[in-house]
Simulated assay, not measured.
Amino acid sequence: MIKHIVFFRFDDKKEVEEVKRRLLGMDGKIDVLRHIEVGVNFLESDRNYDLCLTTHFDSMEDLKIYADHEVHVPVKEYIKSVASSSACVDYEII
């Protein structure tokens, strides 16, 4: 299993709920997406991000399919337009 975890920061905190809605809107629409979870941070700290996306895939190939999927691409582009920064970790669970 592959885990894909992305953290996002937003200068405009009003964007957090809209991004969460758009991310969760992908659920059930991408065959290779096995699990999706979105968490909103509740602590204020300089090192914290505002939102965390956790997704699961069966393989690296499935993660690549997701990256270019017609449902995911507009969500990704919207987030790029409103996020001030992001960080990502991808790893395999053995």
Score class of each variant (00 low, 15 high):
residue 81 S to K: 11
residue 36 I to L: 10
residue 41 N to A: 07
residue 91 Y to Q: 04
residue 31 D to S: 14
residue 90 D to I: 10
residue 72 H to M: 09
residue 8 F to W: 12
residue 24 L to V: 08
residue 39 G to W: 03
residue 75 V to W: 01
residue 40 V to N: 04
residue 64 K to P: 02
residue 15 E to D: 09
residue 28 G to W: 03
residue 56 H to C: 11
residue 71 V to M: 09
residue 15 E to N: 13
residue 34 R to G: 03
residue 80 K to I: 07
residue 57 F to L: 02
residue 83 A to M: 13
residue 93 I to M: 08
residue 62 D to Y: 06
residue 10 F to G: 01
residue 92 E to R: 11
residue 40 V to D: 00
residue 81 S to Q: 10
residue 33 L to V: 04
residue 76 K to W: 05
residue 3 K to D: 06
residue 26 M to Y: 01
residue 29 K to I: 07
residue 19 V to T: 04
residue 88 C to L: 12
residue 69 H to E: 02
residue 29 K to V: 05
residue 47 R to Q: 15
residue 52 C to P: 00
residue 62 D to H: 14
residue 28 G to T: 05
residue 35 H to C: 05
residue 55 T to E: 06
residue 33 L to N: 02
residue 8 F to Q: 01
residue 78 Y to V: 02
residue 55 T to G: 07
residue 64 K to R: 15
residue 25 G to W: 07
residue 70 E to F: 04
residue 79 I to V: 11
residue 19 V to H: 01
residue 9 R to N: 15
residue 76 K to N: 08
residue 54 T to Q: 05
residue 16 V to F: 01
residue 81 S to A: 12
residue 50 D to F: 03
residue 62 D to A: 08
residue 4 H to K: 12
residue 24 L to E: 14
residue 84 S to W: 08
residue 9 R to S: 14
residue 24 L to P: 01
residue 86 S to Y: 14
residue 18 E to I: 02
residue 90 D to L: 08
residue 90 D to F: 09
residue 34 R to F: 03
residue 76 K to A: 10
residue 66 Y to K: 06
residue 22 R to D: 03
residue 56 H to M: 11
residue 62 D to N: 14
residue 51 L to M: 07
residue 71 V to R: 00
residue 43 L to Y: 13
residue 22 R to K: 12
residue 88 C to D: 07
residue 5 I to D: 03
residue 74 P to G: 06
residue 92 E to G: 08
residue 65 I to M: 12
residue 53 L to E: 00
residue 61 E to I: 08
residue 18 E to R: 05
residue 87 A to E: 07
residue 90 D to Y: 01
residue 36 I to D: 10
residue 13 K to A: 11
residue 14 K to P: 00
residue 42 F to V: 09
residue 29 K to E: 12
residue 27 D to A: 15
residue 23 L to Y: 02
residue 74 P to D: 07
residue 61 E to S: 15
residue 28 G to V: 10
residue 32 V to T: 14
residue 30 I to K: 07
residue 66 Y to A: 02
residue 23 L to W: 00
residue 42 F to A: 05
residue 50 D to A: 02
residue 29 K to F: 03
residue 19 V to E: 01
residue 83 A to I: 01
residue 47 R to E: 12
residue 79 I to Y: 05
residue 79 I to G: 03
residue 9 R to P: 04
residue 31 D to C: 03
residue 73 V to I: 14
residue 59 S to M: 03
residue 47 R to D: 10
residue 42 F to Y: 12
residue 77 E to S: 06
residue 84 S to I: 10
residue 82 V to T: 04
residue 44 E to P: 00
residue 42 F to M: 13
residue 71 V to Y: 01
residue 12 D to M: 13
residue 62 D to V: 07
residue 18 E to K: 08
residue 12 D to E: 14
residue 22 R to T: 00
residue 16 V to S: 08
residue 94 I to C: 14
residue 4 H to R: 10
residue 76 K to R: 13
residue 86 S to K: 14
residue 24 L to T: 05
residue 76 K to Q: 14
residue 47 R to Y: 15
residue 48 N to M: 15
residue 48 N to D: 15
residue 16 V to K: 02
residue 7 F to R: 07
residue 27 D to W: 04
residue 46 D to N: 13
residue 51 L to I: 06
residue 18 E to M: 03
residue 22 R to M: 13
residue 44 E to V: 13
residue 1 M to F: 07
residue 21 R to S: 10
residue 76 K to H: 06
residue 20 K to W: 00
residue 33 L to H: 06
residue 59 S to N: 08
residue 6 V to Q: 01
residue 40 V to R: 00
residue 64 K to L: 09
residue 86 S to C: 06
residue 55 T to I: 01
